[in-house]
Write a protein that binds this DNA or RNA. Structure first.
Length: 497
RNA sequence: CGGGGUGUAGCGCAGUUGGCUAGCGCGCCACGUUCGGGACGUGGAGGCCGGAAGUUCGAGUCUUCUCACCCCGACCA
C-alpha cells in the first residue's frame, strides 16, 4: 500500500505565496537553467537541456512520420529581405538584433577592442527572429513546377527577439525552437498541413508532456505577422494563466508573392505557391514546469524525464555498501531492460535523506531506497514523485511494478492537469461577471462579437485576451459579453504569459 | 523605457551618526564519528564590498555617474 509521506522542501517558496518567484527559483534550484552574463539570455544546464533533447527527439520523430525533412538556413538575414512582406516586417521590426560591422580593432585610446568603423557592412544583417524570409528567398530557386511540390522542411535553430522583459524559458532574447516551412500547390493542401501540424503539437503536448491543450484559431489580432490564419494550442498553468504552447500558420500566398515564388501547374499556367509555417520553442519547458511541478520542486512526466528511477542505497559500512552494490546491480539491469533510465546513486559523501530531496526536487518520477532491512526481506522502498507516496514492494517483479508506475504517473499527471483546467474553466455571460471572474484567472468561455475593437477594449480594461477560438466550439447563439451584439459561439478569454 | 527595489566569499544575508584586522549561516576542503527523509564534531580555504569618478586624515558606509539583476506597468512566442 502506498502511503503519503510528510515532507516540505526547505527554504522553497510556495506557489500560493508567490507564483513567479516559485517558478524562477525552481528553474534554478532544479538545475534546469541559469541567468547568463548576457542580458535576457539564459544558460540551459545539462539537466534542463536533457529534457529539451527528449522533447526534440520525440517531435522530430513525429515530423519525420508526417513526411518532413530537416534542413538548415542561415542565422543572418539581409535587412532588405525582412521588409519584403509588409505585415511581417511590422511585426518583428521592433525586436531585431542587427549586425552592422564585421571586424574589431584595437582601441587607439587603449580601451581594449572597438568596432572598426572601416568594416561597416554594405547591407546590414538581421539576426533571425524567424526564418520565413530567408527560406522563401531560397524556395524561389527550388520551385519551378508542380512536380517540385510540396516542400516539407523543418529546421531546429536558435532565434533572437530583443525582449524588454525576460523570464527563463518563457521569454528570453535568444531561444531554441523548431520552425517548419512548407510549400504547396494548392490552398487546400496548405490548410491541411497547417491543421496536421497543429494536431502533432497537440498530441505531443497531451501524450508526452501530459499537458492538456485547447486547439483553435487565433483571433486576427493575435495572428502571426504575415499569416492569413494562425492555429494554436493553449495550455493552462497552475496559476490559471494561459500559455501559448505552439502555433501553426497558414500563410496563404503572402510570402510567395513577396519573394515571387511561382510554379507551372499541370495546365501549364503560372501560380503562386501556398505556404505554412509552424513552431514550438523552449517555452515548452516553461509550460512543462508550470503544469506539473509543486511546492517540493519539479515534477516530470515519465515520457520526458531524463532519469526515470533513482536508486538510493542505505548502509552503515563499506562492507554493507559492497553487498548493496551487488544486490542492486541486477535490479538496475532489469529496470533498464524495460527501457527505463536509471540512476544508481551510491555516492558516499551524501546521506540518503539528502539524496531523497535532491531527486524529488529534480522531478525524478520514481525513487527506490534499498537498505539492510530490505536485503533481509527481499523488498525495497518505492516512492513516487507525483503523489509523494511510498510503499514497500517485493524485489521480485520490481521492474514490472516500476514500469507500471511510470504509466500510472504519466496518466495521473495528465488527469490532474485536466481536472485543474476543468475546474478553472467557466462560462461567463455578463460583463460584470467577466470583470469579477477574470480576477480569479482561468479560462472564461464567452460570446464575442468578432470585432478587433471589442477585443482591444476588453484587453485594455481587464488585461484578458482571446486565447483561441476553439475548433470544437459549439454553435450557440448568444450576445457579445462586451458589446451585446449577436455572436454564434463562445471563445476563450484568459490572462496569459 | 517609465516607477520601485537589490548588488558585500559559490549561495543567502548582517555590517550603527564614516574609524582599527569586514562578519554570520549554508556550501566547499581535510580527518573522525554517522547513514531508513536535508547528520555532527574539530580544523581549514575562500573578499578589488557590482564598476568608475569624487568628498575625506580615513569610504562597505557619504555624493555623482554607470552597469547588472529582480518586482510592477507599456510590447511580445
Amino acid at each position: 500500500m502506498y502511503k503519503l509521506i510528510k515532507y516540505m522542501a526547505k527554504d522553497f517558496v510556495k506557489r500560493s505565496e508567490n507564483y513567479s518567484e516559485w517558478y524562477n527559483e525552481l528553474v534554478v534550484r532544479a538545475d534546469l537553467a541559469e541567468q547568463s552574463a548576457v542580458r535576457g539570455c539564459m544558460v540551459i544546464k545539462p539537466y534542463g537541456y536533457a529534457i529539451w533533447e527528449k522533447m526534440q527527439h520525440q517531435l522530430d520523430l513525429m515530423f519525420k512520420a508526417t513526411g518532413h525533412q530537416n534542413a538548415y538556413f542561415p542565422l543572418f538575414i539581409p535587412k532588405s529581405f525582412l521588409s519584403r512582406e509588409a505585415e511581417h516586417v511590422e511585426g518583428f521590426a521592433k525586436e531585431c538584433a542587427v549586425v552592422t560591422h564585421h571586424r574589431l580593432m584595437n582601441d587607439p585610446n587603449g580601451g581594449g577592442v572597438v568596432v572598426d568603423p572601416n568594416a561597416k557592412l554594405e547591407e546590414e544583417l538581421i539576426v533571425r527572429p524567424t526564418s520565413e524570409t530567408i527560406i522563401w528567398s531560397t524556395y524561389k530557386n527550388w520551385i519551378k513546377s508542380y512536380r517540385d511540390l510540396p516542400i516539407l522542411c523543418n529546421q531546429w535553430a536558435n532565434v533572437v527577439r530583443w525582449e524588454m522583459r525576460t523570464r527563463m524559458f518563457l521569454r528570453t532574447a535568444e531561444f531554441l525552437w523548431q520552425e517548419g516551412h512548407t510549400a504547396h500547390a494548392t490552398r487546400e493542401e496548405a490548410e491541411e498541413e497547417t491543421r496536421r501540424m497543429l494536431e502533432v503539437y497537440a498530441e505531443f503536448a497531451e501524450k508526452y508532456m501530459a499537458m492538456p491543450v485547447l486547439k483553435g484559431h487565433k483571433s486576427p489580432n493575435e495572428r502571426f505577422a504575415g499569416a492569413l490564419d494562425t492555429l494554436c494550442i493553449e495550455a493552462m498553468m497552475q496559476d490559471g494563466k494561459a500559455l501559448q504552447a505552439g502555433t501553426s500558420h497558414f500563410l496563404g500566398q503572402n510570402f510567395a508573392k513577396a519573394f515571387d515564388v511561382q510554379f507551372l501547374n499541370n495546365q501549364n499556367t503560372l501560380e503562386y505557391v501556398w505556404a505554412t509555417s509552424w513552431g514550438v520553442s523552449t517555452r515548452l519547458m516553461g509550460a512543462l514546469i508550470m503544469t506539473h511541478s509543486d511546492d517540493n520542486g519539479l515534477v516530470l512526466p515519465p515520457h520526458l524525464a531524463p532519469i526515470h528511477v533513482a536508486i538510493v542505497p542505505i548502509c552503515k559500512s563499506d562492507e554493507q555498501q559492497r553487498q548493496l552494490d551487488e544486490h542492486i546491480a541486477p535490479i538496475v539491469k532489469a529496470l533498464e531492460a524495460k527501457g527505463l533510465t536509471v540512476k544508481y546513486d551510491n555516492r558516499p559523501e551524501y546521506k540518503p535523506g539528502w539524496k531523497f530531496n535532491e531527486y524529488e526536487f529534480k522531478g525524478v518520477p520514481v525513487r527506490l531506497a534499498i537498505g539492510p532491512r530490505d536485503l533481509e526481506q527481499g523488498t525495497c522502498e518505492v516512492c513516487r514523485r507525483d503523489t509523494l507516496e511510498k510503499a514497500n514492494v517485493s524485489i521480485e517483479g520490481i521492474a514490472d511494478h516500476v514500469a507500471g508506475l511510470m504509466e500510472q504517473i504519466q496518466a495521473n499527471l495528465y488527469k490532474k492537469a485536466a481536472d485543474f483546467r476543468a475546474s478553472m474553466t467557466r462560462k461567463v455571460d455578463t460583463w460584470d461577471d467577466f470583470k469579477t471572474e477574470i480576477e480569479k484567472n482561468g479560462f472564461l468561455l464567452c460570446h464575442w462579437d468578432g470585432t478587433a475593437e471589442t477585443e482591444a477594449r476588453i484587453k485594455e480594461e481587464t488585461k484578458a485576451t482571446i486565447r483561441c477560438i476553439p475548433f470544437d466550439a459549439e454553435e450557440e447563439p448568444g450576445t457579445c459579453i462586451y458589446s451585446g451584439k449577436p455572436s454564434s459561439r463562445r471563445v476563450v478569454f484568459a490572462r496569459s504569459y
